[in-house]
Design a protein around this nucleic acid. Structure first.
Lengths: 163, 163
DNA sequence: AATTGATCATCCTATTTGCAACTATCTAAA
DNA sequence: TTTAGATAGTTGCAAATAGGATGATCAATT
């Protein structure tokens, strides 16, 4: 959160605004994600991290991505992605493939079962997004929100220290 | 994430939009939070969850809140809040107090040291928010974003199953 | 070719988290 | 009252996570 509605601005250099959107941003995010995870769990489905990986892979050029690209796109630490992909692979949802010209590297590729699982998860996830999120936004708000998020993402990705 | 830019809408009932803000929303959130946590760590400071609890308590009516109120406000599972408050208490940043008319209950109250810590964390957190988030929004965007987040928060809180 | 420094992925360990009990207390109804 | 059912907070255990270390390979320079 932040100094939010904030008592008085503390310094001149920090140039506070009347009211930052930040606290609401992270709080709304956490609350929404908690609700969604609840629904997935109730439906006996894997959690969001699985969905995200499957979704990213499904949209990738050849249904596959290098591990580090996947980690960056899905915003998952590399070491955690290794284990997540282990589990997905054990469940037959993705397969690892060697990289022809770089023996250090590996691809993760989504399988047919992986696509099925993503689709199955979407039957819970999609309506949840609709109901908890989209439903409360006008078309214009949705569009602006999307644009803003892409802008933030672009700049934050542009200055990753470890990227 | 979501069906995003989405191939074609799958059913009529799901009433998809051209492009949902949802994937960007959670991805931007995760990326921003990761950067911020990085900075706090680099500064040898505790992580965001400590800040949020201290911040919520500092703004609370009497600098204190019942454990369950704190959990709900900060969006932290009760069992995790118990342990988080344990740690904060061990560090002298909050104290637990009994509730006069409900012997089951407990307050968490922020201490002077707690306020100092929040303030110290803000010297890193505040500029990070400014630089990574606010800086990229116009005043109008910030205001709208804030309003939207509050709206989402209100509705998601209105329908909590476990609340 | 040899060396140095990055990069890729994984492994290891300490924490943290989620969930399901569990205890104590309160509330409402019989 | 007594009892049945909620509520507050905590605890235990399994699983997930973060972050640094490791081993292997690649790229650039000498």
């Amino acid at each position: 959160m932040a100094e939010a509605g904030g008592r008085r601005a503390r310094t001149k250099t920090t140039g506070k605004r009347a009211s930052s959107a930040w606290p609401g941003f992270i709080t709304a995010h956490d609350a929404l994600v908690a609700r969604i995870e609840e629904r997935l769990r109730a439906a006996g489905l894997p959690d969001l991290s699985w969905y995200i990986v499957l979704w990213v892979l499904e949209r990738a050029p050849e249904q596959r991505l290098r591990m580090h690209e996947l980690a960056d796109t899905a915003v998952i630490a590399r070491s955690n992605l290794t284990r997540l992909v282990d589990k997905l692979e054990k469940n037959g949802l993705v397969v690892r493939e060697r990289v022809a010209d770089d023996r250090r590297g590996a691809y993760a590729r989504i399988t047919e079962r992986g696509r099925e699982m993503r689709s199955r998860m979407w039957t819970v996830y999609g309506p949840a997004i609709e109901e908890l999120f989209l439903r409360h936004l006008t078309e214009a708000e949705n569009a602006l929100l999307r644009e803003i998020m892409m802008r933030l993402l672009a700049t934050v990705r542009g200055q990753e220290p470890g990227l």
